[in-house]
Design a protein around this nucleic acid. Structure first.
Lengths: 210, 210
DNA sequence: GCTATTAGTGAATATTGATTCATTCTTTTG
DNA sequence: CAAAAGAATGAATCAATATTCACTAATAGC
C-alpha cells in the first residue's frame, strides 16, 4: 500500500469540483444551458475536458447540480423576504420585488431556471424548484386570505399567475429587455417596470386599486 | 424542348409542399420544434428526406413558414374576439378567453409559439407575432383607458403581464396540465382554471374586484 | 528514491441529426 | 416510342459535441 487519499488531496479535489461548478454557472448565466459547452467550461475552469468527467458523471448531472445550487439561492432570498414582519400583502410585495430584481440582474439565468427546456434530470430539479416557489407564494396568499387582506381564491393558481406575469415581463420572449438591452440597464426604467408589474400582480390578487 | 412544367405538375407539387407543411405542424404540435426531426416529417408526409429540400431551403425555412402559418391563425382568432361590440373590458375578456382556450387545446403548440427557443429565422417570425399580439392587447387596453373602464397605465407592460400570466398558467412549467394531464382533460376543471386566470388578469388591469 | 495508486490530460471516438448528390423514376412533347 | 427535363430518392457525408480511454503526471507511504 503506497497511496491513500489524504486530507490535502480531498480539499484540492473539492476545490476543483467547485471551480468547475462555478464556471458552469457562469456559462449558463451567459447563454443558458443550451449554449454551455463542456469544452468551454473546461477552458474557463482551466482543466482538461476529461477532468470534468472525473468530477461529474455526465453533462446532465453537472447541469442538475448547478441548477440545484442556483435555485437554492433564489429560494432562500424569497423565503427571507416572506419572513419579514408586516401584513401578507406587504410581505408578498417584498417577495415579488426580490424575485423581479433578481431576475432583472441576471435575466438569462432567470430564464434558464424558469423556462429553458432542459434534459430530464435537470427538469426533475426544476420540478422541486417550482414546487418550492409555488409553495412559498401560495402559503403567503393563504395567510393573506386568513388575515382578510386578500379575497378568497385558488392560491395555487394565483401564485402561478404571479410567476408568469413577472417571468414574461422580465425574461420572456415578450420582454422589453430582449429587444432593448441598452434600455434595460437604465435603473430608473427598471424601477418603473418592477413597480408596474407589482401593481398589476397585487391588483390581480386583491382586486384593490393601488 | 421536351418537358415543361404543366398545371397538373404545379398542383401536385403544391400539394406535396402543403402535405409537408401539415406534417411539420403535426410534429411541432406533438413535441415542439426541438423534437421535430426532418426524417420523421418525411415519414409522416410519405416522401424521402431529400424531397423536403426540394420544397424548402432548409429546416429553418420550413419551420419559419410553419410558424408564420400557425401564428396567423391565432392572431386572427384574437382579432375577431376584440372586434365584437361591447366595452373594452368585455372585449378583452373575450379575447383572453379565446387565447386561453386555444392554448389549452394545444398546449405544446402554444408553448412553441410563445416560449420555445428557436433558430434565428423562426425567432424573426416570432418577433412579428409578438408585435401583432402585444399590439392587439395594447390597443384594447388603450381603448379601455379612454373609455374610462381601465385606469391609466403602461398599456404595453400590462399586455405583457396578461400574456405571461396566461402562458405560465396554461403551458408553462408551473402549469397544472404539465403534471396532471389526465385532470387537464376534464372540461369543468379547465373552465374553472380559465375563469380564475381571467379574473386575476382583469383585476390586475382594472383594480376592480369581480 | 522507488513503487503503487490515483488524478489529469486531450486526441480519438461515438452519436445525433441535418444536408447533399449521384442515381432512378416520371412527365412532357415531337 | 424516344429524348429531354425535372422530380424524387435515400444512402453517404458533414458538422457539432459529448464522452472515452490510453497515456502522463502527481502524490503517498515505505
Amino acid at each position: 500500500m503506497a497511496y491513500r487519499e489524504t486530507e490535502k488531496m480531498r480539499l484540492r479535489k473539492a476545490a476543483a469540483r467547485q471551480r468547475i461548478a462555478e464556471c458552469t454557472y457562469e456559462c449558463v448565466a451567459e447563454g443558458g444551458f443550451r449554449n454551455a459547452r463542456i469544452t468551454r467550461i473546461a477552458q474557463l475552469a482551466d482543466v482538461a475536458t476529461g477532468t470534468i468527467y472525473r468530477h461529474f458523471e455526465s453533462k446532465e448531472d453537472l447541469f442538475a447540480e448547478i441548477f440545484r445550487q442556483a435555485t437554492q439561492r433564489e429560494i432562500a432570498k424569497v423565503t427571507k423576504a416572506l419572513a419579514t414582519p408586516g401584513s401578507a400583502t406587504e410581505r408578498l410585495e417584498k417577495a415579488l420585488r426580490q424575485f423581479a430584481e433578481r431576475a432583472l440582474k441576471g435575466p438569462v439565468m432567470a430564464w434558464s431556471l424558469i423556462a429553458e427546456p432542459v434534459d430530464p434530470k435537470v427538469e426533475e430539479e426544476r420540478l422541486a424548484y417550482r414546487k418550492a416557489y409555488a409553495g412559498l407564494f401560495e402559503q403567503a396568499i393563504r395567510e393573506g386570505i386568513e388575515e382578510g387582506c386578500i379575497p378568497d381564491q385558488n392560491a395555487r393558481q394565483s401564485s402561478t399567475c404571479l410567476v408568469g406575469a413577472i417571468a414574461e415581463s422580465l425574461v420572456g420572449p415578450l420582454s422589453p429587455t430582449q429587444t432593448n438591452l441598452a434600455a434595460a440597464k437604465e435603473t430608473e426604467n427598471n424601477d418603473q417596470l418592477v413597480n408596474t408589474i407589482i401593481c398589476f400582480c397585487l391588483q390581480g390578487l386583491t382586486g384593490i386599486r393601488r
